[in-house]
Design a protein around this nucleic acid. Structure first.
Lengths: 185, 185
DNA sequence: CTGTTTTATGCAATAAGTTGCATATGTATA
DNA sequence: TATACATATGCAACTTATTGCATAAAACAG
């Protein structure tokens, strides 16, 4: 699986604790990979057993010990190999679309509410991605060039959200129209 | 989870065997939900235990017995309730984007090959969706209206694939450009 | 007439992800 | 001063999905 590799990628850029990584997943690469702290801690444990990462315990006054993880040379080797390998596109499994597929006129009010809720979520996510993009545009050209590939993944996130929003609006409106004539009849 | 509900939706439209459902997942709703036959058989077993479906065994000459599943009234009730409930948007986890994010110039040739491979897969999926859409357009207006919501989910699949193709082409070209000046220098 | 695909169902083991809980303290907010 | 939030890590139980295997016969292609 790839959560392991996502962690290796982040640790290859900069060592960090499980907590750090949780933040980096949420803020940095959440547009293409989401992971909870439980998953991250579990995987760090396994990666350590496989010697792909190692850690130093940093005692902190009062707070619990912080484990600072680093990628090992083996880890880097495994990562390099994985980047050059090939994967299948991710499977699509979308509960909302099951509902749209199966909805009958009596379900339309609830469905419209649900579509609106998703619309709102996707608008918020898009706004957050666009804010991140604005930060990228403020960088000088040399720095932009250095993080061009990460930026391209953000572009993908932006496009993905825009796509959702367009479809949701279109679908929402079509379903709303469908319902009205029946109310008027 | 929602595989159960996807199965209930299909059985609510028409009874069928595990094998039937596997086909219907692949051909009918594969654009928003994918499931292997193992998963389907496992879930049918559980759905039967929960009394949300029941089955009749049809002995067939030579072939193994076919189990014809039907949704029960309880199943329909559970399904109705679920359709009106709300879910979170699916989590995004895309291995290809990890690779784009992490790739260094020495990885570009392999990455370009991988992007091309995905491009091909998405083009094939799009072609298959468009063929399905063409079938929809051939129907008379009354029939089109009756399956309008399922069609809207297909539209989403089409848009999704188009989105991927556009991003892959754009990204592919940008990475290819990036690499060339270094070869020429 | 031989080999591949389609029809038809399933078990077992493993991997991956989710949910709920537990602990402990510093720091900011009301 | 009480409450909530951020820091920091983790276990246990459960659900969900994947991988690999097994069986068995008809139907079709070469």
């Amino acid at each position: 699986m790839s959560l392991k590799h996502a962690i290796l990628v982040l640790l290859d850029r900069e060592p960090g604790s499980g907590y750090d990584l949780t933040q980096r997943f949420a803020k940095g690469i959440g547009h293409f990979w989401q992971a909870s702290h439980q998953q991250i801690y579990q995987q760090l444990k396994k990666l350590d057993e496989e010697k792909l990462v190692r850690f130093e315990t940093q005692a902190q006054a009062g707070k619990p010990d912080r484990k600072l993880y680093r990628i090992t040379p083996q880890g880097q080797k495994v990562l390099k190999r994985w980047i050059k390998a090939s994967d299948k596109p991710p499977v699509v499994r979308d509960a909302l679309l099951i509902k749209v597929f199966a909805a009958q006129p009596e379900d339309y009010p609830a469905l419209l509410a649900e579509l609106d809720r998703h619309l709102q979520i996707h608008r918020e996510t898009l706004a957050s991605h666009l804010a991140q993009e604005a930060g990228y545009f403020e960088l000088d050209e040399a720095h932009q060039r250095r993080i061009r590939l990460p930026y391209l993944t953000l572009r993908r996130g932006i496009r993905y959200e825009r796509e959702w929003i367009e479809w949701l609006q279109e679908t929402r409106d079509l379903i709303a129209e469908d319902r009205l004539p029946e109310q008027g009849a």
